[in-house]
Design a protein around this nucleic acid. Structure first.
Lengths: 367, 367
DNA sequence: GTGAAAGCGCTAACAC
DNA sequence: GTGTTAGCGCTTTCAC
């Protein structure tokens, strides 16, 4: 039994079709300048021999390399730190694929800062991944980049009406609905008020989660009453303060849905009110902190997104688009993770197995 | 501002170190036969220039290709059908990476069949992915394959004490614990009996899920009593029969945990008993059917695993191991998915975007 | 329209 | 120990 290797080269196809390598290449890559009849012969040969292009050889011969900018938030938000780490890992991986990432950190709460960053982005970038703010100036900047041929993907937070090529992130309304379903079911028919603590409802992802949550609670759990959202700006101290006020004002509060970050502050507020055990609390993002609150029982469920998956996906999508390769759509769908006490992954939650081999992964901004 | 391409080749490194290409290559790839001092000079140059090997070029030059066998269950189990489809998609992708997959379908409930299949596997396979049964004969066959240099990964169901290189699948005890947590919380302090419907407790994944479920219910929800498991062999008719009996015998049943397949049968039993609305039912795998039961409210939560992710992961791990490339461990961790009414993905659930371009993806068994 | 030929960056065989 | 060299399969000029 011979070992069928399956190895069929373009050369074989050319021979079979009785044309030269160059012509076979033109046909296979749909380049112009080949007679119908010749093309047909080549296509026949492709089918007959079961030819599949060798991606490694194609990449090598094309000899193109790419440069991408990743624009991430400044600050100490734990999830964003994970994301930054994972972008580093992705950069190391991409470097082996002739693609190079520069990471820039900006204040994403400020549309002008992020808009300006995009507007001034050096032209040598083939692609950019940006944790965006849905604002006209940002949208315009994205559209301009797209117009000049730079591939733009939005990361974690989308700008739906822009001309961005792709959005890498979870379906936030669905995440909110999931939180709503869990909240309603965990409360098992109990009657009471639900508090909402968001970072800022001006952030599209927060607003969308709130929307989805509301939808489910209003539609399926009429005994629950959602209070007006309070904003903690994703900061620990401020989140603690607003949560404290919420708890003091509504002694009959049965649940809290934390839409954004600042969960350490919320935990403090809940604990100092002595409500750890009975108050139902659902939050976003699995970090070292939410993980602990989940184990302690203060936090009842976490809705998560996988930072590693998001970073890799952004890198893959940019690379594929710039180099004209196909992606596997299923692989680029970022799922909503749900964590309860039973399925908390082993420490450290999604920590990065960084292996950068002496490479400076994060170049500075303007270089 | 010049565009720094980051493109540093081995040739550059060799020049910088004052050695030849071949020597630089030996050092970089840790091959023997280079003096300490020379190696040091090369390593210095690597660091100084920030050299990263070009994977595409390496693959091309190595000019190796691989052949893998995927051993999957026969039968019409919906999840396994998804998996088969996804293995097809993976095969199409791998074909572009000089790796070729043959798919074999065997009766995984029979240790002798699967053992024999492994024992007789042609030597030209560089790797095999197998949905295994944890049985001595199977374990021995896996160990023999490993001993002769064939890389073995277990898929979906593990054989932990074998010498398999890697397990691609979810953490089943954790999946069971998750089901337990959801069951307990959704029942919100209610008292009553829980029925367990498994395919067969001789299957390691089913046994592990049952174990994890038990652990959580016994430890955290003392008001719930778990009944002795009944087995439906993952078949629709049989699952319906055992569930009917369960419901008839225990009118005070408050929940059912379906550990394996056969969910259409379980649904029929629940419906004909008129318990769709009040009985809490948790099952595994998101299929067209469980999706519908979830939407209808008969089913309250689904614990899932992503067949596409598993198929790709198995392919990547085999390819990486056989070609000596690194993997990103984080990417190869298969997470436990949880679906409730709020986060059911759009139809068709994980359907395959098949794009095989005229390639016969699934070769027949003995070829 | 079509073909010949020069690489792309690396590996591996062989020579020194 | 170290260097030279012939490819790997494809893309891309540049002739014809």
């Amino acid at each position: 039994m011979a070992r069928p290797t399956g190895k069929v080269t373009l050369e074989d196809v050319a021979a079979e079709a009785g044309v030269s390598l160059a012509t076979a290449d033109r046909v296979v890559n749909k380049r112009a300048g080949v007679r119908e009849k010749t093309a047909a012969r080549v296509n026949e040969a492709v089918l007959k021999l079961g030819y599949r292009p060798d991606i490694a050889a194609a990449r090598l011969a094309r000899n193109r390399s790419f440069r991408f900018a990743f624009i991430l938030p400044v600050g100490d938000n734990t999830f964003m730190t994970q994301l930054t780490e994972q972008v580093g890992v992705t950069a190391a991986w991409l470097a082996g694929q002739r693609a190079f990432i520069d990471t820039l950190h900006v204040d994403v709460f400020d549309p002008d800062v992020i808009g300006r960053t995009l507007e001034r982005l050096p032209r040598y970038y083939d692609g950019v991944a940006v944790v965006a703010l849905d604002h006209p100036r940002v949208r315009a900047a994205i559209d301009d980049l797209t117009a000049r041929g730079t591939t733009v993907v939005t990361l974690v937070s989308d700008v739906p009406n822009s001309r961005r090529f792709h959005y890498v992130g979870i379906d936030n309304p669905a995440a909110g609905r999931t939180a709503g379903t869990l909240m309603g079911r965990f409360l098992g028919g109990k009657k009471g008020k639900i508090g909402i603590v968001a970072g800022s409802l001006a952030l599209r992802d927060h607003a969308e989660r709130y929307f989805g949550f509301n939808q489910v609670i209003a539609g399926e759990f009429p005994k629950l009453e959602i209070l007006a959202p309070v904003e903690g700006r994703d900061e620990r101290a401020r989140s603690e303060a607003v949560t404290k006020r919420l708890l003091a004002k509504h002694p009959d509060l049965v649940g809290i849905y934390s839409v954004g970050a600042g969960n350490r502050g919320i935990a403090s507020a809940i604990e100092s009110a002595g409500r750890s055990a009975d108050l139902l609390w659902i939050a976003h993002e699995l970090t070292a902190y939410t993980r602990r609150f989940l184990l302690l029982g203060t936090l009842d469920a976490v809705i998560g997104q996988n930072a590693g998956h998001e970073a890799r996906s952004a890198g893959r999508v940019l690379l594929a688009q710039c180099s004209g390769e196909r992606i596997v759509p299923d692989q680029e769908t970022i799922g909503i993770d749900i964590f309860v006490r039973g399925n908390i992954p082993a420490e450290p939650a999604f920590a990065a197995p960084v292996e950068t081999r002496g490479l400076a992964v994060a170049g500075s901004a303007g270089r």
